[in-house]
Amino acid sequence: MISVLRRELLAFFTSAAGYVLMAVFPVAMGLLALFVFPAVLERGASWFHTKELTMRSFFLAFPWVAAAVMPAIAMRSWAEEYRGNTFQLLLTLPAPSWRLVAGKYLASVAVLCLMLLTTGVFPVMIAANGGWEGGPIFGGYLGCLLLGSGYLAIGMFASSLTSNQLGAYMAALLACGTLTALGSFAGLAGSSGALSSMVRFMAAGDHFNLLAAGYLKLETVTFFISMAAFFLMLTALGVEGRRYR
C-alpha cells in the first residue's frame, strides 16, 4: 500500500499538471473568495467592501471548486492503469484489491492536504488583521478535508469504471456537482416526506456549510466518512470484478 501511495505521489509530482494544479488552486480560490462569491452574496461588492474579516466566502466557494478539481485529481488513478496496461502488473501483485485502492486513495488525499496547505496564507492574513475565529476556520478546513476526500472517492470510483480519463472526469463532475447543488434544490422536493429527507441528507454542500459555520456534528463527519468508504468499497469491488470480465 505504501509503495503504491509513493508511486502515485511521484507520478503526480513528476507531471506538469500536478504543479499547475498546485499553483492555480490557491490563486483560483483567492479570486473566488475575494471577488466572485462576495459579489454574488453582497450584490456586486468585493470581499474588501464587506468589512467582514472572515473566510466565509472562501468556504462558500470550496464545495464548487472541489466538485471540479477533485475529479481531475482522481480521474487518472485507474483509467491510466487500464490504458497503459499497468493494471495487469497491479493485479499480479500479492496484495488484495482494497490495499491497492487504499494506496491510491491516500495519495490523492495527501495531494488534497497539500492543496489546502497552499491556502494557509488566507487565515494567516485574517489573523494578522485581528479577525481570527478559530471555530469556523478549523471547522471549515476540516470540512474541506472531509468533503474533498469524499469527492476524491467518487472520482476514484468513476475512474475505476473506464479507461477514458475524460469520461471518468465528466461522470465524477456530474456526481459531485449534483451533491454540492442538492441543498439549493431541496425546496423542490417539498418540506417534508421521504424524498425531501433524502435530498437534505445527500446535500453534501449543506453538510459542509455546517462545518464551515463552526458546528462540528458527528452526523456531518459520519456522512462524509461514509460517503468516502462507500465509494472506495465500490472501487475495490469494481477493480476486483475486472478479473471476472
Binding site: R6, N85, T92
Partner: peptide, 29 residues
Amino acid sequence: KSRIGFLPETPPLYTAMEVSEYLRFCGEA
C-alpha cells in the same frame, strides 16, 4: 502470486519512471 512472475504480451511499464526506480516499486509492492 508471490511465487509467480508474469510478463504479459505488452510489458506493464510505468514509462515515466527510470528502470531501477520501476523495479524498486515492483519489489516494494
